[in-house]
Structures are given as structure tokens and as C-alpha cells.
Design a protein around this nucleic acid. Structure first.
Lengths: 340, 340
DNA sequence: CTGAAAGCGCTAACAC
DNA sequence: GTGTTAGCGCTTTCAG
């Protein structure tokens, strides 16, 4: 018997803990659950052919031991050479907080599954410039040419957004807009303004629709609308400033993102309008650095990234198409108050 | 002989290419250079004990074959359990384009070396909240408590910035400021404004100093200064707008970052000041999305990240302290012109 | 349904 | 100075 094999054997047999530098490995789980590492792997990855009771036991011990599979090992072993392309819609900025946060989480979860991202630029024709084994489409918009493109290529893909008959996942933007409206209305605000941007973007459009429907249901009329050049704080600032300088004085503002909202906050301050006593402001996203003090609609970016990876793995394994809509919720902080 | 061993042997002996899915591995290089994989590894990693001629040959074949070491394998094999902590100075934003770009490049290069980052938050005392095997200190500022802290801990560390007697790397911010001044002066501008932010930050301070020194040398007086609240476009916008509305009318502006510069561009446009015919604007960084049309001082973020990793590895191996200052250069685009 | 072991690409310790 | 090989943690045949 080769020395290596014996060493491994010893490890599995002996009660002494392995010297893995504190890290819990698949061997530890196997030993604790009294099965082989192969079984642990199968159980954990949902591969068929494991007795339900065994699977349960393995899963339980894994949780108990706080087992966290090593991504390098997984990647090395998988080596299924799946190149996952992350495609961002043409003209969509990539250095925005939301995108950065999503990308970080997404690569993390992907790496945990032993897969690797490949950031693929979108050409001016709106299509990904390189082929890949699988696609993740970000920045969905109506008549997105990338969907047909991925289907034509016959590649598995996941759309972050929504589209009939396609594997997709997205936050419930429409419900978020509704939540914002209801919150503002409940506080007695009737002079409402919606600050938005990039109307062709599915996310912004959905948020606006949800907000508008709720407002119309309550007040029998639409709110005012200010469309910023893009989603940055500066654009939000300029949009609100122009609106206020034109003489309007809303008491409730729903900004379609925290970034826009943060620009609105500054504009209000610069024009001597106090928040929340003069005007209430609701944002969207609940981003770490920009929206920390805002009343906002929270969406779970980490969950979004995680589910994207799940759907992607399902796609890779040829499973049935499934779509997800992730819940959002209102986080009430200091930027909204009752109408005076 | 175990089957695995034989298979490996066969691979090395036979002329047939390995079925590695197209990927060039260390085996391919070894075979082509007529040495063993061990020697290839040593040669490539600069470990001593390789004949100069052999090393040369290995390096050459590696380049020729476009060999790109697999990071997962490297990481798995290394497993030196080095936890590299990336520490950002307290109060320093992490969602800024510069930081995001640096972080991406840095993790990439680190992963290529088989190391792994661990993003460590900085407490309100200005110190990293967790211990680690090595530190990278970002956002250097005078009297940075983290330097003494890392030294006290006896941990190897690299400062992105500069400090006597410490392993550090930074772009030549001062030279960049000088370059901006000289460019503006050469175009005939004498009514100058410097838009800066966060004066305690080493980078901003150095850029300001370089600019000021060059201006004083030429005009025997300092330029005007506008300090923005932070480094964002919105802050740059407000700073310049306030300055212009107060009655000043500079013909040459040096913004300490592309983000600030982009805000300045918008402010100028909003106030009917044309760029570059009425005013010339120079930025700093040459960031992909924000500074694409700006005349700016270019710094190489990828090189900065790469050298940081190099210094870190040197630190880990206990080599002599060495410090780097990376060159910057002027990129002339459409936002500067001769004074009318 | 489960265990054993090959092998992913690489580094380092050990032989010669 | 160079070759050989154990082993990093995991997935996946292949036997039973």
C-alpha cells in the first residue's frame, strides 16, 4: 500500500484530529458521520444515490461542524472548464455600488461552487463580445437582444430581471415601489415626487410602475416625475434641484435608488429644505455606504447573487426552468416623517 | 507501481499531448524544456538552486507556451494559511471606483500567487479589527496608527502610500500634481484653481503639493483652492459651483481626481462655462468610466496592485525592505486648451 | 447505496 | 542542480 493511501486511511480511522490548520475538511465530516468522504460529497452536492437517512445525518454533522468546503479544492477538482460570462447591458455603468456589490457576491458564490466568472464586455450591438459556456445577463431591459442571442447559441443562461419563459431572478421592484408609496401616503403626504433615471431599465421601470399604481389607487392621480440623467447622486441632486427651483414643493419624495436619494438629500440641504420636517425622502436598495441613514426599500443583494448561482447551476445541469422573485421590505429610518 | 504514478510517468515520457482541456500545465512546460516539473516550479518562482541556463530555458519555454499557472492549484498546494488582511483607513469609502478597481486587481494578483485576501474592517480607533498573517494598508495618512500597530504585532505589511523605513508603494502623486500644473501653465493659464478633498489623505496632499510648488515656481504665487467635502463627483460639482458663483473665474482647473473633475465638468456646463474654451480642466487617475474624455494624469492601478503583491511576498519571505514610487503621466484629451 | 481511490495542477521536502 | 513524489481538499468514476 502506498504511503499516501495509508496516511489517508489512518486519518479516517484514528480518532485524532487531522492537522489541517484548524480547517474543517470533508474528512472530518466523514469521520464524524461515520461514512466515507465520497458519500459526504454526494450528500452535500445533492447527487442522487444516497440513502435519505444517511444524507440527513451527513447534512446535520456538516452544519454542526460548520463545514465550509474549500473553493480552491473544489475548483481544482471540478475542472469542468465552465466559463461563466457575466454580461452587463450596453451602456450600463459597471462602477456603481450596486453592480460592484453584486459582482463581489456573485463571484464569491460562484467560486464556492468551484466555478469561475469571466467578465465579458457587451458590444455596441448589445451582445456579449465573446462566447462562453454559460451566461448571466445583468441590466435587463425590454427587447433585450441578449436573450435571443443566448438561446440561439444554445447556452444555459440566467437573466437578472424578468422575462417570460426564461430562467430569471430579480427583486420585487414593483412591490418595492408600492411599499414606498404606501409609506409616504400613510404619513399623510399627497404632494408626491418620483425621482427616477434610465426609464428603459427594467428595474427602474418596475419601481416607477409600482409607485405610480399605489399613488393612483389612493389619490386618483399620478405623482410628479423627475427623470435624472443617470443613477448617480450628482444626477439625483441636479434633478431635484431643478425641480425645486422650478417652484414645485413636494412633501414626499421616492427616489428610485439610494444613490439618487443621497443626491436628493444634498439638494434639499443646499436649498434650505429640511429633511424630514419639510420633505420626506425614501430611497431604494439599502446600500451600505450611501444609504445608511435613509428610509429605504431594502433588497438583499447577497441573496440575489446566491440565487443567480443556484439557477445557473440548475441551468448547467439541464434542470427545469424556474424563476424567482425576491422579496423587498421597507426600512424606516430618519428621512421620513408625518406631513406637518 | 501505483497506477496513478504510472499514468503520470507515461505523460511525461510520451510525446502525446496531455488531455488537459487545452490548458497548458506545468507538465507541458517541463516536457518542452526537457526538465522535471519540480525544476519548472523552482525556476518560475525564483527559488534558488537552479542552473542559470536551465532557468533561462524554462522561462523561455513558459513564455513561448503562454503558460499561466493555475491559481486554484497553487492555492491548494501552498496552503501556507496566510491570511492577508486588506485594511482601509477609517472613514475611507470603499465603494469608490479607485478602491474597487484596486481591490479587484489586488485580489487577482494575490490569487495568482496562491494567496487569499480577507477584507478586514477598520475600527473607530483606526486599527484593523482582526489580526492576520500579513497586512496591506490602504488610504495612508499622516500619523497612521496602523503602521505602529502592524510593527507591534510583528506582522509583515505593505503600505500603499509612503512612510520612511517601511515597505511601501505609491504612485508619484507629487509628480502628477506638477505635471498638471506644467500642462496648464504651458497653455498660458495663470488664473488657476485646485479642487481637492480630504486634505489629510496622503494622496490628495501630495497632489496638491506638487501642483502648488510648480505654480509658485512659475507665477510666484499660489493658485486658488476649493476643498470639496469628499472625493465624489457631487462634491466636486458643489465645490466648483460655489466657487464660480462667488465670482471667481479661473481659466485652468486641476481636480485632484477624475471623479472630482467629472463633477467640475457638469458644474461648468450648468453655469454656462464652456470646456475647454472658457476653462481647461485636468483630472487625476484616468479611471475607465468616469475619466474617459478628460485630460488627466494617468496612474497604473494594475501595476500598483501587482507591485503591492510583490512587496507582500517579499515581506512574507523576510526579504530586505524595498519601496517603490510608480510613475504617472499626462494624458491629453479634450478638456484642456490654450488660454484665449 | 456506499467505500476506495484516481486525479485536478501545483509546491516543497526529500533523494540522489 | 535536478528528479521524484507526497499531499493540499475535493469530485467522480469504479467496484462491490
Amino acid at each position: 500500500m502506498a504511503r499516501a493511501a495509508r496516511a489517508r486511511q489512518d486519518r479516517q480511522r484514528s480518532a485524532a484530529p487531522r492537522a489541517t490548520g484548524g480547517r474543517v475538511t470533508i474528512h472530518d465530516v466523514a469521520q464524524a458521520a461515520n461514512v466515507s468522504i465520497g458519500t459526504v460529497s454526494r450528500a452535500l452536492n445533492g447527487r442522487g444515490g444516497v440513502h435519505p437517512e444517511t444524507r440527513r445525518r451527513v447534512l446535520a454533522t456538516a452544519t454542526e461542524l460548520a463545514y465550509d468546503p474549500d473553493r480552491a479544492a473544489r475548483e481544482l477538482s471540478n475542472r469542468r472548464s465552465v466559463a461563466v460570462a457575466l454580461s452587463v447591458a450596453h451602456g450600463y455603468p459597471r462602477l456603481t455600488p450596486f453592480f460592484v456589490l453584486f459582482l463581489q457576491r456573485f463571484s464569491d458564490h460562484l467560486a464556492d461552487s468551484g466555478l469561475r466568472v469571466q467578465d465579458v464586455p457587451t458590444g455596441s450591438d448589445g451582445l456579449p463580445e465573446r462566447d462562453a459556456d454559460a451566461f448571466v445577463l445583468l441590466g435587463a431591459h425590454p427587447d433585450d437582444p441578449r436573450i435571443a442571442h443566448a438561446e440561439r447559441l444554445g447556452r444555459p443562461f440566467v437573466l437578472v430581471g424578468h422575462h417570460p419563459g426564461v430562467r430569471c431572478v430579480a427583486p420585487d421592484d414593483e412591490a418595492g415601489g408600492r411599499l414606498a408609496a404606501e409609506h409616504l401616503l400613510r404619513l399623510g403626504h399627497e404632494s408626491l415626487l418620483h425621482v427616477s433615471a434610465m426609464p428603459h431599465s427594467q428595474a427602474y421601470a418596475d419601481r416607477a410602475r409600482g409607485f405610480d399604481e399605489a399613488v393612483r389607487a389612493a389619490l386618483q392621480r399620478s405623482s410628479a416625475l423627475a427623470v435624472a440623467d443617470d443613477g448617480t447622486p450628482l444626477s439625483g441632486y441636479r434633478a431635484l434641484r431643478a425641480h425645486l427651483e422650478a417652484g414645485s414643493c413636494p412633501t414626499g419624495i421616492f427616489a428610485a435608488s439610494d444613490e439618487l436619494a443621497s443626491g436628493c438629500m444634498t439638494a434639499a440641504a443646499d436649498l434650505g429644505v429640511r429633511v424630514p420636517s419639510d420633505v420626506s425622502i425614501v430611497g431604494f436598495d439599502d446600500l451600505p455606504e450611501v444609504g445608511t441613514r435613509l428610509t429605504t426599500i431594502r433588497q438583499d443583494i447577497d441573496a440575489l447573487a446566491r440565487e443567480t448561482v443556484t439557477l445557473l447551476r440548475e441551468a448547467l445541469q439541464g434542470e427545469r426552468i424556474r424563476s424567482l422573485r425576491l422579496p423587498v421590505s421597507l426600512v424606516s429610518r430618519g428621512t421620513t416623517a408625518e406631513r406637518r
